[in-house]
């Protein structure tokens, strides 16, 4: 176990390094500088002053080295556009993305697993076909288009739900305000991962049902419901844990679009702002934080998996 962890840790560090190198050189070698040097009506002198102030007159390699040195001590630099520490800006926004994704995961699991099981045990039936059909539909609808249509319906025509924002926080917080802002974003994000959960549960369940030991239990005359819920389900659920690891990156990618549609001020809208404003330190910071989050999630999934699945316990 320890060897496994050390191994994974080493790989993660290498991955992180590769990601930072690619991102750093990509953004720094592109035409156009940070917005702060790039106002339309800034005079050449104002521009030059900014370039020197931000240290952009130094070679890229030197900048990368100093960035990396800072990053190792937990200092991700200062945002070009707000002059606040990058860590602080990310810390302000990350909780909103986590809020959104956690609700989405919980709802997707609560809905997706029973549907997947139903689809598996009724294999080939009408409900199975309907579920399959809608899974594919869910995978095919562009999330932002669906989002726009929902806004058109619920915000513009019916006026039931707010079209944008995260709702009031702090002293003005109220429950309905919070929930009403969450409904549409969570719904959209759910459609991007729910089909995956349904399909994975279905195939995992089918796999287990066709195993010999289930046949044996059946042959012994156990009730079908007991076979399904006690024996098959327990073993089918274990692999489902792994799909969480697969879904995290997909969820975060989906969050960028969802946040953009609904003005959800999370990490997704922040990366858009940062990329458009050429806020190099902020882009780097977000990239590295996102990569770490994904690596951690995968690591946790691996550990949990090795704990619950007797077959891989001794790895």
């Amino acid at each position: 176990m320890l060897k496994f962890l050390i191994n994974r840790f080493g790989q993660s560090i290498i991955l992180l390094l590769i990601v930072t190198v690619i991102t750093f050189f990509l953004i720094n070698l592109a035409p156009g500088g940070p917005s702060s040097t790039m106002r339309m009506d800034a005079s050449p002198e104002e521009r030059q002053a900014m370039v020197e102030k931000l240290g952009l007159d130094q070679p890229v390699i030197v900048r990368y080295a100093s960035w990396l040195k800072g990053a190792f001590s937990g200092d991700l630099g200062t945002s070009f556009t707000s002059n606040e520490p990058v860590v602080q800006r990310i810390a302000e926004r990350l909780p909103y993305t986590i809020e959104l994704t956690i609700f989405t995961i919980i709802i997707s699991i609560i809905i997706g697993i029973p549907i997947g099981i139903l689809s598996a045990i009724k294999r080939g039936s009408v409900p199975d076909h309907i579920i399959n059909f809608f899974s594919v539909v869910g995978l095919s609808v562009p999330a932002f288009w669906l989002g726009l249509m929902l806004i058109l319906l619920f915000s513009i025509n019916l006026g039931w739900l707010p079209s944008s924002g995260v709702g009031a926080r702090g002293v003005d917080f109220n429950l309905w305000g919070w929930i009403s802002h969450l409904i549409m974003p969570v719904l959209i994000l759910t459609t991007t991962i729910l089909p995956n959960i349904v399909r994975f549960t279905r195939s995992s369940m089918l796999e287990v049902i066709s195993q010999n030991y289930i046949r044996t239990i059946r042959a012994k005359g156990a009730k079908e419901s007991i076979v399904i819920y006690i024996h098959a389900l327990r073993n089918a659920l274990i692999p489902i844990i792994t799909i969480i690891g697969v879904l995290i990156p997909r969820l975060l990618s989906g969050a960028v679009i969802t946040e953009a549609i609904f003005g959800w001020t999370g990490i997704g809208t922040l990366i858009l702002e940062a990329a458009r404003g050429r806020d190099y330190p902020l882009v780097m910071g977000i990239t590295i934080v996102i990569t770490i989050v994904v690596i951690l999630c995968n690591l946790i999934v691996d550990i949990v998996y090795s704990r619950v699945d007797p077959r891989v316990k001794n790895v």
Binding site: T23, G245, V246, P249, V256
Partner: peptide, 11 residues
């Protein structure tokens, strides 16, 4: 696969 590639696509 583990990296949320949409972030990179955008950048």
């Amino acid at each position: 696969m583990a990296i949320p590639n949409f972030f990179f696509v955008l950048v």
